[in-house]
Design a protein around this nucleic acid. Sequence first.
RNA 1: GCCGGAGUGGCGGAAUGGCAGACGCGGCGGAUUCAAAAUCCGUUGGCAGCGAUGUCGUGCGGGUUCAAGUCCCGCCUUCGGCACCA
Length: 804
Amino acid sequence: MEMQPYDPKVIEPKWQKKWEEAHAFEAESDHAKPKFYGLIEFPYPSGNGLHVGHPRSNTAMDIIARKRRMQGYNVLFPIGWDAFGLPTENYAIKNNVHPAAVTQKNIDHFREQLKKIGFSFDYSREVNTTDPDYYKWTQWIFLKLFEHGMVFRDKTLVNYCPSCKVVLSNEDSQGGKCDICHGDVVQLPKDVWYLRITKYADRLLQGLDIVDYPENIKQQQINWIGKSTGAFVRFPIAGADESLEIYTTRPDTLFGVTFMVMAPEHPLIDKYAGRITNMDAIRAYREECAKKTEFERTQLVKDKTGLCIEGLRGVNPLTGREVPIFISDYVMMGYGTGAIMAVPAHDQRDWEFARKFGIEIIQVIKGGDIEKEAYTGDGEMINSGFLNGYTNKKDSINRVLEEIEKKGIGRAGVQYKMKDWAFNRQRYWGEPIPLIHCPHCGVVAVPYEELPLRLPDVEDFQPGTDGKSPLAHIDSFVNCTCPKCGAPAQRETDTMPQWAGSSWYFLRYCDPHNDTAFASREELDYWMPVDWYNGGMEHVTRHLLYSRFWHKFLYDIGEVGCPEPYMKRTAQGMILGTDGEKMSKSRGNVINPDEIIDEIGADAFRLYEMFMGAFDQAIPWSTNGAKGCRRFLDRVWRLQEMLVPGDGYSEGLNCLMHETVKKVSLDYEAMKFNTAIAAMMTLVNEMYAAGSVTMGEMRTLLLLLNPVAPHITEEMWERCGFEGTMVRQSWPTWDEAAMVRSEIEIAVQVCGKVRGRIHVPADMTKEQAEAELPAREDVQKLLGGKTVVKAIYVPGRLLNLVAR
RNA sequence: GCCGGAGUGGCGGAAUGGCAGACGCGGCGGAUUCAAAAUCCGUUGGCAGCGAUGUCGUGCGGGUUCAAGUCCCGCCUUCGGCACCA
């Protein structure tokens, strides 16, 4: 009988429908079972539809989730939509439609695309951040943060994107570029709502010790948090009743201070404007600095600019020595105290500044050549009063800190590069911030029972030129009464950033339909923490940090039971265009997943995305490579023609079967999908070489391949007449004993070079082999008359003969 | 400048210190076909040789070792992240 050819267009929809009807992938309510919570970053449903990067991340977790089900776990593998955000809002403005309508359309399109790839998501737990039933709880958590003093308003210099017309957090403006439109960000003084993430800086660092993240992700977070230890020291201002406080990591160099520097925006300058004799020049310099873009300020580091503040002098609190105070934009207002003590002998930036302005350089640590550059190494302390003779940096820092505290001129302290999270956006398509401005009571929280505070319908989503959110123009939204005193009051009109909804969505998945809590504690305690979270590297210093922060806060107020949300994090590499460049519309190198699936089927598409290279590395797309994966599935399909009876493994394939089960099982766990698939390809090649496949061999092969290629394996499972569907079969096991061969082939090296191969008994010991093998005839032949000095036998591998 | 990766055939990439190049793509030869596609079989790192075989080969220069793609020291190139962070 002629066998039907492999036709994914028929079998893929067939099985997708069957799975859906059987609710095959819905998490079970049975809390007695061991659980596995696998998570992928929920997508932003953009108008462009799915790109080939989504399936790479999703397939990887899908493989793990499917394997876990077969291992007997109760698996939660959810999906949802991170749907607030500017691209949708901008599209809505441009096309004159409501963002909610755009969002719904995009979500429907995404869901349809994901279903076509056969991911084993639990669609019954879908969440959507723009759904009022969801953002009610985003607002609820915000109010909890507010209640606990974690929300504050401050007028400071903030990152502002003139093109998107929004204030951005530090995380959203890395490198001085807007994260949304990639345009230049400017610094403006603005009144902004902040979340006190810096209060959690230390905890966010410590938490990294108990989680399983790749080292580079940990490092990036550590660098972003940027903790440094040092000291705050007050330098009295000569002739005034006030001090200029500085932060330094090198208090041991206090005796080498020859000047001080303030940031251009430092408030003390205005306070003493009357005493400063060159205030006009100072004002001119400040204006010059304000005009510089982030790029100019950071890239032109070679040439330091600045100006001496005439009429203000600082006094070194340890030596009594008077030093000049400068203003310069190499000191930032946003870090430390906005002022520094300058030690040109031992800090390269101070050294360059001193050289330019002809300031004295006093060496206090022996070493280097301070005529050429600052010496930042260790050495014996000199010119440093009570510190003279100290040779250990730690000791001298401890000694000087002791002295500073004794004299009451400062204290030890820490600083972080991370800043508080600028949290409000002047845009429409986000969660309304549930706060009310009352003329009598100040800022008042919207009562919990009034949540969700819904987004009002508006005609015009365009942000105002006045820097206000579109909501500010809706009187019916803005005007309200104060919940405290009943007086007429006004609502906050800014919305939350896109990162708000994604900071806790993994909690909602645990209990997505709960309308009395964001999730019940019982469900949270069962499912949390997330066992395995896969996503992209671009979220390491944004979403990953923000959500850890929210989670730790919820933990502190007793709402969740675990201190870290994600036990294990992995990250996939980016898929590049066939030209090796990042995919982009403008380059015209975008691969459309729909077209690939249409051509080779979803299973081959999944297979190729996992096979193309190391999972965590960037990799260019290869059209032929993808076809090769389809070819492999065709070969698997045709194995049906070679089926012979037998539940076990045939003698010739027995070893390889066990080896492959082991290899594939371990490689999936390590996300080494490429080598797992290679092992299955080798097995299939050997089956062809053998000319027949037993039922038992077929069964195992289908089980191993199922997580990667679920449709074809289900279809073949059915055609082979195996029981049930594959979803809840048991994962195959291997037997180490079965993998031992009686005789093995090893390489023979002479002086480290391979000269030939011989067969030896597998159970030969090292001693035995080294004593007996050199004398063997086939070994002697390879020696070419040389005399063996030493023999080294590596069991199962090789024999190396050192010979003369 | 700092932090973290990566440099291996024509290409994507494999290799607990132990036979470099698994697996796939591409190429070449053959079978099948009227022909092509598809499929199947064989072959495929460079150089020399009809051949067995020899020889050179994992970015560069040293080193450790019986044995180095892998470990150590010193560089180069490249990608990603941060960056005047006191």
